[in-house]
Computed example of a mutant assay.
Amino acid sequence: MSALTIYENAPLGSLIRYSDGTPRPPARFTRKLKAWEHRNGIGRLVRKEPPHERPTYSSPATFVLHEGKFSASGVTLISVMCSYIVDSDLSFEVAERPAIGMVRVIQPLGENAELLHLAESREAAELWVSRKGYSSARLEEITADEVGADVVEGRAAMPAAVL
């Protein structure tokens, strides 16, 4: 699936797998393995940015994946976020969509929004917000309309009688 399809159809909070189609090199080739891991991985979709047109500069639409974080003693030291443009040469797929009833904690960023946390329930989301202290965060519940979109997987819905 293309990066553009992810940008247009995948909901925030989805786990997105990306790949360049090459096989994983053996562990003994540490440099090749590190380069391969840079172009093959998985992350949670946390932000979508529309294209920007300026008089001297233009940028294509992008999306951002949260790929992990490094912590020590319960304190996050580094969050790894990677941005991908919609005409990327990588292949993308939705590995997992947020489940119905989960709640997104969203922080507005100008005209866009960034996913801060994906909670199992509204109570868990409210507890997370109170602990972290995000005053401008808003909560969005995942609905059946959002999760049931077969277009994200690139399939057409089949009538029950055909199955």
Rank of each mutant, 00 (worst) to 15 (best):
M1G: 15
S2W: 05
I6R: 05
I6H: 05
Y7E: 05
E8C: 09
E8F: 06
A10F: 06
P11I: 03
G13V: 08
G13L: 04
G13P: 05
R17L: 08
S19T: 12
D20K: 08
G21M: 08
G21T: 11
T22R: 13
P23W: 06
P25F: 13
P25Q: 07
A27I: 11
F29W: 09
R31N: 10
K32P: 04
E37W: 02
H38G: 15
H38R: 15
R39S: 15
N40T: 08
G43L: 02
R44H: 01
K48N: 10
E49C: 11
E49D: 14
E49Y: 11
H52Q: 15
R54I: 00
R54K: 06
Y57E: 08
S58C: 05
T62R: 14
F63W: 00
F63H: 05
V64K: 08
E67W: 00
K69W: 14
A72N: 10
S73P: 00
G74T: 03
G74F: 04
T76Y: 02
T76E: 13
I78M: 04
I78C: 02
V80N: 13
C82D: 15
C82G: 09
D87E: 09
D87F: 06
S88Q: 05
D89S: 13
D89W: 06
S91E: 15
V94T: 09
E96A: 12
R97L: 10
R97A: 02
I100W: 04
G101L: 03
V103R: 04
V103I: 01
V105Q: 01
V105L: 01
Q107N: 12
P108G: 07
E111F: 04
N112K: 10
E114A: 09
L115Y: 01
H117D: 03
L118I: 01
L118M: 01
E120H: 10
E126F: 02
L127Y: 07
S130N: 13
R131H: 07
G133Y: 15
G133P: 01
G133V: 02
S135D: 12
E140G: 07
E141V: 06
E141P: 03
D145V: 00
D145Y: 00
G148T: 06
A149M: 00
D150N: 11
V151I: 12
E153L: 10
G154Q: 09
A160P: 05
A160E: 12
A161Y: 13
A161F: 14
A161L: 14
L163D: 11
